[in-house]
Amino acid sequence: MKILVLEDDKTTGPYIAEGLREEGHSVDLFANGADGLVQAMVGSYDVLVVDRMMPGLDGISLVKTLRGAKNRTPVLFLTAMGGVDDRIEGLNAGGDDYLIKPFAFGELSARINALGRRPQMAEEPTILRARDLELNLLTRKVTRAGKSIDLLPREFALLEVLLRRKGRVQTRTMLLESVWDIHFDPQTNVVETHVSRLRAKVDKPFDVDLIETLRGSGYRIDAA
């Protein structure tokens, strides 16, 4: 497995890395949380071993940032903070396991191997596309043909639903539930109004219309 160890203790970090390498794993070791976050984001790791107290960025903030970016790599917290509330905080932050220092290397290795055997969830895309239209879920930016498009929050949410379900017809009822969390028909034209506004920004300035109306059915963005 490819493992990232984030541990600032000058003895513990190299000890863990050496032991895991002896077991045949590929290991990267970082002592700074900010540097470790960058590495975790760009590297393709099977398991992360994360100390809670590190310079640059603490382990809890690091894992929360990863989970917010849809990074699902299993995380084992390895820390001296062993109180019940500490463990709860770590797991609620997105940790998959929690091991308290001092620890036995054999147990650490077994826990890492167990996390590595878990089936990985497919990572959700961070950019949704249809032809030359792009919606970035992380930066909340929308562009078409390289030109920035400013959308209001509901317009953004509406476009996100249409792109996530690209090629599939979305009825008025489905859009009311997904975008407005309305589970009944309020007898308003809120969907039609927002689709019209979205078209004015996403389609009208360009040569090809992406948002289709299927009379009597609903709306869709063609998957082609």
Rank of each mutant, 00 (worst) to 15 (best):
Y15R: 10
R199A: 12
S109K: 15
G82T: 05
L29Q: 06
A34Y: 00
L159S: 08
E107A: 01
P102N: 06
A34E: 14
K2C: 02
A34F: 05
L48G: 01
L137Y: 03
T193Q: 14
G13T: 07
L128M: 07
G167N: 05
G59H: 09
M53H: 13
V208W: 02
V84G: 00
P74K: 11
S196K: 15
V190P: 00
S148H: 12
L99Y: 01
R197P: 00
M121F: 10
K2Y: 08
L135K: 09
P205F: 02
V84P: 00
T79G: 13
D46C: 06
A69R: 15
L214A: 11
R144Q: 09
L135T: 06
L57H: 05
L99H: 04
N71E: 09
P55S: 01
K101Q: 09
K2G: 05
Q39T: 15
L152M: 12
L151S: 07
L214K: 14
G43F: 05
K64L: 10
A69C: 08
M81A: 15
G43D: 04
G33W: 08
V47D: 05
I60N: 01
N189T: 15
W180T: 12
I127Q: 12
P74N: 07
R67C: 03
A17F: 08
A34I: 06
L135V: 11
T193N: 10
R67H: 05
R144G: 14
G68Y: 02
K101C: 04
S217V: 12
V38D: 08
V179A: 10
S26P: 00
L115H: 10
T11V: 13
M41F: 07
G106K: 10
R144A: 14
F156D: 07
R131C: 03
L138G: 10
R199P: 11
Q170L: 15
D222P: 00
A157T: 07
A223R: 13
E22I: 04
L66F: 03
